[in-house]
Design a protein around this nucleic acid. Structure first.
Lengths: 189, 189
DNA sequence: GCGGGAGGAAACCGATCGGTATATCGCCTT
DNA sequence: AAGGCGATATACCGATCGGTTTCCTCCCGC
């Protein structure tokens, strides 16, 4: 069935796109992208209207895996406080990988300064979802102002991922204590 | 005197470069850069070896003004705590400007993923200097671990500037309370 | 076996990339 | 007034940009 071939071509393209955009930045060319994906430009432009749409789709495709990685194991176990701190533990751990370049969604927003860009829209959704998770846990844990705490945690999360990705910080023993201080200040269990 | 002309050409070029790189990103072309600066490519390549050097020099040139902006007024007045919080007040204020795109040094590090890039070196210096200021104030204020507190404050600073620059956060009433919580947790006066 | 559609390779499009070379102009010095 | 230097404008270089098109091959159902 033709659908199978088409889907696998699409998958190969989006996987290569996600990796290349992350490693080299959004300015990577269509030529290089298709070459490493093993997909012809013709096929790419049959599946997507433009390079921008490929970038947006590759970010969207990675979102479930990205969120699962931050949750990992213990999805529903532990107190709300533990579940929040777990995210920062995962961040600290991810940042030790040699290829770590920071959160790909924040990087996309910074590199594409245009908020209208289709990839920027996807990136904003990713960021809002994480903030929403923080807010829910904060509310469950009895934080004084769950929304404020969630915003504060996002500052730490994005600052940490950006600095680690830029190679100017090693989060070892930094992200978790910082988040802890904010949880305490918010009066969370 | 010829020196004057040369300096003004250089200044015009670096000023335009700083503004364009900040607004459009590091991928702005040499052609467009020289056009808006009113400088010929020939002159540019006599003053600098490459576009990369122009970028690095433009970041370096803006550093004193950038630091002065974060300090503003009250350079030596106030308690160490007040002086730290003052930086976050300035950040909150700067982020309200419509053209705000976040800290240009962090943006450069994120966009140029190469840590060897001459502009990345300058950007790292800028970040280290701010962290050094935080550390000194933290020590003066009797923080338990001045270096740890300085790193935590940098997380908040960079997270806040990146998110505000990306247009996904308005720092209003966020950056200062977050920094305050960390100062309190560090046991600082 | 044969027709047809999908997909790949590659040429091609105009534009722009970073960088260089040429030729001329204007100003300062002597 | 003459010379020289700094600056400009402009054309040019090969490469690459995002995107389109042509051609050809391979594989599928009939």
């Amino acid at each position: 069935m033709a659908t199978t071939d088409k889907a696998s071509t699409r998958d190969r393209l989006l996987d290569a796109a996600a990796e290349l955009f992350y490693r080299e930045g959004v300015s990577i060319g269509v030529e290089a992208l298709c070459r490493t994906a093993g997909v012809s430009k013709r096929s790419m432009y049959q599946l997507f209207a433009s390079k921008d749409e490929v970038l947006a789709a590759s970010l969207e495709r990675r979102l479930p895996a990205y969120e699962a990685r931050l949750a990992s194991g213990a999805q529903d176990a532990g107190t709300p406080r533990e579940r929040i701190l777990h995210v920062f533990e995962r961040l600290e751990k991810a940042s030790t990988e040699p290829a770590y370049q920071g959160c790909p969604y924040l990087a996309a927003l910074v590199e594409l300064k245009d908020p209208q860009h289709p990839a920027s829209v996807v990136a904003r959704v990713a960021k809002e979802r994480l903030q929403g998770v923080f807010r829910e846990r904060a509310a469950e844990g009895g934080a004084r102002d769950p929304q404020l705490l969630a915003r504060q945690l996002m500052l730490v999360f994005d600052g940490a991922s950006a600095r680690a990705g830029a190679g100017i910080e090693t989060l070892d023993g930094l992200a978790v204590p910082t988040a802890t201080a904010l949880l305490d200040a918010a009066g969370m269990s």
